[in-house]
Design a protein around this nucleic acid. Structure first.
Lengths: 203, 203, 203, 203
DNA sequence: CATGAATGAGACTTCATTCAT
DNA sequence: AATGAATGAAGTCTCATTCAT
């Protein structure tokens, strides 16, 4: 169940993340928000007529659902791949997972931005599904930190809080990092691995 | 020039943060977003008719601006007070500032949530003003970390990145912390001071 | 039943035509039309609060009625006075009536403008009354022209049409004449007497 | 660049002057004025829903602009055609132009009525354009009367005033002439040619 | 009469969505 | 899938008017 746009190599962000129509919708939602975006704007942005858009997606909500699901699936797939690559060592697992989180939120900040700010615009079961996906994702890091703590490899007295802090920190990258700055996503990820290590090592 | 709702003691959150009408608007914006909220909903929420609301605020946008400005002013006023209390010692300055950030984002998470997610809904000069206020706020922490780093009291090689990570972490509290959980805001703040110290001490 | 603002001398336009409040309303109606004017605008223009305005006039409609009635009463009173001054000679009667019409529409163009363009905004019996007043006014000139025609002093074969043409011409002054132009109202009136004579003399 | 609704023969008023939707708007504006007309009324009048109307015209103002522009364009086109037909003789030019003015204001009195009474409701550049069109139209008659006066064919000492009086007179037809009266537009036009001749011949 | 607050009704306009072609 | 036309519902905002103080 690999999402469209997730390549086998979790460090590869060269492929477009979304089918073009969802990409257009994503751009609009980022700029004006879900409720602030008219479906006509999305259609124009995608080079389609309005009925043409409805030919592909049955509703505006479906666009948002498509984006949210794809974003969570891509993040989870990449995270899982990173953990597989890390093997059993808990510090490696922590480092690669942080690297993965930063890379995804730097390269795909728009997805993350929408996934974070427009959950409230998801209707019905889609919202529940999204929250479940988010919890499942959070659990990946929680488990690593908990294990590192149990093994005495991480010094923190508050593994749960530290884990949440790390997540928040990496997720927050989507709110300020933009391509073209002084650091590449890879450089930023390297620094964040350092910084986050401090977080779980602090007593 | 103390902002309305900001008491002399920066640790005191017992006073209501906003005039009741802005409070009602804040609730609605948090639940449905700015564009997803009908002004009628706000009016009903505030126990007013629609023109009654317009008697106090000239537009929906004015409600958002009022909230955003009040949020930033309150945060800045409390942060400044915390730094004054801390005196000259850079570690104390860092600790109290982090404590302040966490307290504000735990107690006033709705303000922070809106201030972060609805910047794009601010129109014209209000947006510029908001961004300026955010930068001014960020600079408070940047300066402390830079000074700590210069003095050799903080070990981090990336003071700028660490500072942003700390900000993101504390700001992120608004996205998940809710009253009624296992930790009080004060307890959470204490833990975050620890965790954040790790961030700036990591090499 | 002389209207307020109509002095004994029909050539005298030095007195204000309307009580100040109606004057303010008139200004607004001229600029934006009846339906285009908010009653708050009138109040501000008059230096009153909104309830203050309602203390004097019970409704917006009452303002319009007051203006329309005063305008028609003033015009009729001046016309009657002019005819009295002219005595029995039909050419004198024609000349003085034309002079009077031009003077009124040049000096009080705002009244005439509103009386002509906002009849449709008069509700109920006020509209009927206004139309009756207009017909009564028109009859003054019709009678003069008819008599001149009957006596063979006017050459026109179409006295009714000529009379209407003269009325239209003089009424039309309100649409273009403004104080400050090259001609004073009195000079303009003199010319119009000439021109109108041509109208009723043409065969 | 003939305006829609202006046929090659300037005496022909059998074609509808406006597209049906503008026609409906014109009816409503005539009855209640621009500001007094709800766009819902126009839509109903045209057999459309409100958004259906907006599909064709982007705003209420656009309806007014469309009417005003069409009215002025039609009048100018017919006037120009009448002058072409008249050739060089200045009295013929005067006669045909007056005939044209009367016919237009008798047949299309609604257009003229709105064009005269709702200029103040035109916003921004549309108002300037309308006034320019009106001046251009006025100049047609001004030039004829000035030439006739220069050539000694018209006796009037005040050609400018006489020209304005004629214009006002003919324009005023729109305020009182209605189909179904004792005179056809053509008969009325014939009489007005006589009457107006008197205007420019009077000394 | 000023102030301040309030409101039912209704204004213009936009939106997501649909249907026939 | 594009085009053009259409619409029910709902959006923001304004208006004339009123009442308590």
């Amino acid at each position: 169940m690999t999402a469209a746009g997730t390549p086998p190599n979790w460090r590869d962000f060269s492929v477009p993340a979304l089918p073009p129509l969802l990409g257009a919708a994503l751009d609009c939602f980022v700029e004006h928000g879900y409720h602030g975006t008219a479906i006509r704007t999305v259609a124009t942005h995608a080079g389609l007529s309005v009925p043409g858009l409805y030919h592909h997606y049955p509703s505006k909500q479906a666009l948002l659902v498509g984006i949210a699901e794809s974003a969570m699936a891509d993040l989870y797939a990449r995270s899982s791949a990173a953990l597989r690559e890390a093997g059993e060592d808990v510090e490696a697992r922590f480092a690669l997972l942080v690297e993965c989180l930063v890379l995804v939120h730097a390269y795909r900040w728009e997805h993350a931005f929408i996934a974070a700010s427009e959950i409230r615009s998801l209707e019905g079961p889609a919202r529940a599904g999204h929250i479940a996906a988010r919890d499942r994702q959070q659990k990946l890091l929680d488990d690593v930190v908990a294990e590192g703590s149990r093994l005495g490899r991480f010094a923190t007295r508050y593994p749960k809080d530290a884990s949440r802090a790390v997540t928040t920190m990496c997720t927050g990258v989507a709110q300020w990092y933009r391509a073209g700055g002084p650091l590449s996503p890879e450089e930023l990820a390297a620094r964040y691995v350092q910084i986050c290590r401090g977080t779980v090592q602090a007593r």
